[in-house]
């Protein structure tokens, strides 16, 4: 009796081990659907897409969450829905794009008459966007990350009146990289995606693209 039981046990153990192995195999070795590739490249141009049977998990990058600004509608949920408070999403400035405007749509409240840094003129609720005079007529705008709460107010202003150099981004030194990002779940435009950890940014205008390509306006845009 105990012998038979032991044998059955061993059999089951072997079975479970095999099942686990099968499962891992299914996850590791599998054909890709040609949509994405763990190299972080788009598979569409890759000659091995579809038939590619490389062990996906072995070469798979860790992924992190990032926000695709092209989809963002600045609803403010990044500020309120992050498990961290203040949010790990913060405004990030692509300096390479900035127009150094005197009248910055991301900085000034609408209707501001006298362009000074006084409180009544500032759009940012926490005074996190700093304005500094460089030389006539240029101003530098920087972000105090400690103060920024990721509300996206300036991002909306910059996008509407400027060239969109102020962008919301997940700051990976603050992000806990939750398995399922709570902002992603609540993002109305599904703008949060998993990106390879070695390419954690989805910012545009960092000096790698031609003006206009980002907005697809054919060379007459920034």
């Amino acid at each position: 009796m105990p012998g038979r039981r032991e044998f059955l046990n061993t059999l089951m153990r072997g079975g479970i081990l095999a099942a686990l192995g099968l499962l891992s195999g299914a996850v590791i070795f599998r054909s890709r659907d040609g949509k994405s590739c763990s190299y972080g490249f788009d598979c569409s141009g890759c000659s091995r897409s579809k038939s590619c049977m490389l062990p996906a998990a072995l070469e798979a990058r860790q992924t992190v969450w990032q926000l695709d600004m092209t989809k963002c509608i600045q609803c403010g949920r990044c500020a309120t829905n992050c498990v961290m408070s203040p949010s790990a999403v913060k405004c990030t400035h692509a300096f390479a794009m900035c127009g150094y405007c005197d009248l910055c749509g991301g900085y000034f409240k609408p209707g501001t008459k006298i362009l000074t840094t006084a409180a009544e003129n500032q759009l940012c609720p926490t005074n996190a966007l700093k304005r500094k005079f460089i030389e006539d007529p240029f101003f530098e705008y920087t972000i105090d990350e400690e103060l920024c709460i990721g509300c996206g107010k300036c991002v909306k202003g910059c996008g509407a009146f400027g060239n969109g150099s102020l962008q919301l981004q997940v700051r990976h030194d603050r992000c806990k990289n939750c398995n399922e990002c709570s902002i992603a779940r609540n993002c109305p435009s599904q703008a949060f995606t998993r990106v390879p950890a070695n390419k954690p940014s989805l910012m545009r205008g960092l000096g790698k693209e031609r003006p206009g390509t980002a907005a697809k306006k054919g060379g007459v845009d920034a």
């Binding site: 006298i114 006084a118 409180a119 009544e120 926490t126």
Partner: peptide, 27 residues
């Protein structure tokens, strides 16, 4: 409300001051 007031009355420096104080306090 104060900001709206200021937009209608941009020359009012006292109001301006008030806003700045309130803003500081709020933050």
């Amino acid at each position: 409300m104060l900001i709206e007031k200021l937009q209608n009355d941009p020359a009012n420096d006292q109001l301006r001051q008030e806003i700045r104080t309130l803003d500081l306090l709020a933050r």
